[in-house]
C-alpha cells in the first residue's frame, strides 16, 4: 500500500544521504522524496512516498527513527491529510494550440508563467492524479518537457508535526 511519511530531521550535511542510503540498503521503495528547511532553519522536513506491506512500513518508520539526525517521523496516511505536488510543463503553443492550451490550463487552475512565440510554461499544483489528468487532457505531442517536485504532505486540523 502507498504511504506518505513525513520526517523532521536536523538540517545537517549528510542527513539526506542517510535517509536515502537507508532506503536503498534495505530495499525499500522511494516513489518520491521532497525536502527543504522548515521555518526553524535548524530543521528540515522531508516527505517520502513509499509503498509496502504493513510490516515493511513499520520497519521503515522504526529504521528512520533510529537514524541519529531524525527528530520525528509520522506516517501521514494513517489519518486525514492533504498532499500536493507542483508540476511545470513546457508545451508547444503555436496557432490554434495557443488558445486551446490556455483553456485547458484554466480548467485545471494552472497558470501560464512563461510565454514565448512558440511555447508556454504552465504551473500546476494538486495531488498526483490531478497532474496526471492534465497531461492526459492535452495533446501529448505538444509536451516539450515536464518537471514535478514530488509530493509534500501535511496532516489535517490538529495533527501537527513539530518539535
Amino acid at each position: 500500500m502507498r504511504h506518505i511519511i513525513s520526517i523532521l530531521l536536523e538540517n545537517e550535511a549528510g542527513a539526506l544521504s542517510r535517509v536515502c542510503g537507508l532506503f536503498s540498503a534495505r530495499g525499500y521503495n522511494i516513489e518520491s522524496l521532497t525536502v527543504a528547511p522548515t521555518e526553524d532553519a535548524s530543521l528540515s522536513r522531508m516527505t517520502i512516498v513509499t509503498a509496502g506491506s504493513d510490516a515493511i512500513i513499520e520497519q521503515i518508520t522504526k529504521q528512520l527513527n533510529k537514524l541519529i539526525e531524525v527528530v520525528k517521523v509520522v506516517d501521514l496516511s494513517e489519518a486525514p491529510h492533504i498532499e500536493r505536488e507542483l508540476m511545470l510543463v513546457k508545451v508547444r503553443a503555436v496557432g490554434k494550440d495557443r488558445e486551446e492550451m490556455k483553456r485547458i490550463a484554466d480548467i485545471f487552475r494552472g497558470r501560464i508563467i512563461d510565454v514565448t512565440e512558440t511555447s508556454y510554461v504552465i504551473e500546476l499544483t494538486g495531488n498526483g492524479s490531478k497532474l496526471d489528468a492534465f497531461l492526459e487532457a492535452i495533446d501529448r505531442s505538444l509536451i516539450m518537457e515536464t518537471v514535478r517536485t514530488g509530493v509534500s504532505g501535511i496532516g489535517r486540523g490538529d495533527r501537527i508535526l513539530k518539535v
Partner: peptide, 8 residues
C-alpha cells in the same frame, strides 16, 4: 533496546 529489532 532497539525497536527495529522487534517484529522484524
Amino acid at each position: 533496546i532497539d525497536p527495529s529489532s522487534i517484529s522484524k
